[in-house]
C-alpha cells in the first residue's frame, strides 16, 4: 500500500497581527494535500483570530486540495476563526469556479488585503 507518496509541497506559516499566514509552495495535489491539511490543523489548534492561506506559490491544485480548504473553512466556522484565501493564480481559481466554491470562500488579492478584510 502506498502512503501519500512523495510530494514537493512545502508549507510555511508566519504570525502577523491577530492572525497566521500559511503559504504553501508547490502543487496541492493528491500527495501535497495531506501536508497542507496537517499544517492547517496545527495552526487551527492554536485558535488564531484569522488564518490567511496565501496561494501565490501554488501553480496547481486538484479536488483534494479544494477539499482540504473546505474542511479548514468548516473548522474555522466552528471555532469562529476568519479564514481567507489570497494570491490565487488563474489555474487555481478555475477549479474553485468549476466546483462553484469561489463564492463560498473569502478570496482577496494579497496577504495585506486579507489582513485588513
Amino acid at each position: 500500500m502506498a502512503d501519500h507518496g512523495p510530494t514537493t509541497l512545502a508549507v510555511r506559516s508566519e504570525g502577523r497581527g491577530d492572525g497566521v499566514i500559511i503559504s504553501p509552495q508547490g502543487d496541492v495535489d493528491m500527495t501535497g494535500s495531506p501536508v497542507l491539511r496537517q499544517e492547517l490543523k496545527r495552526v487551527q489548534g492554536n485558535r488564531p483570530a484569522r488564518i490567511v492561506v496565501d496561494l501565490g506559490g501554488v501553480p496547481y491544485m486538484d479536488s483534494s486540495g479544494v477539499a482540504t480548504l473546505v474542511e479548514a473553512l468548516q473548522a474555522a466556522k466552528r471555532s469562529q476563526t476568519k479564514l481567507l484565501l489570497c494570491g490565487m493564480q488563474d489555474k487555481v481559481r478555475s477549479i474553485f469556479e468549476i466546483a462553484r466554491l469561489d463564492a463560498v470562500f473569502t478570496i482577496v488579492a494579497t496577504a495585506d488585503a486579507a489582513m485588513k478584510a
Binding site: 479544494v66 482540504t68 473546505v70 473553512l73 468548516q74
Partner: peptide, 17 residues
C-alpha cells in the same frame, strides 16, 4: 454542489470540463 463539504468533487470536475 449545493452541499458545501469536502470530497466528491472529482467526478463533477470531469463532467464539467
Amino acid at each position: 454542489l449545493e452541499e458545501i463539504k469536502p470530497g466528491g468533487l472529482g467526478v463533477h470536475i470531469i463532467h464539467e470540463v
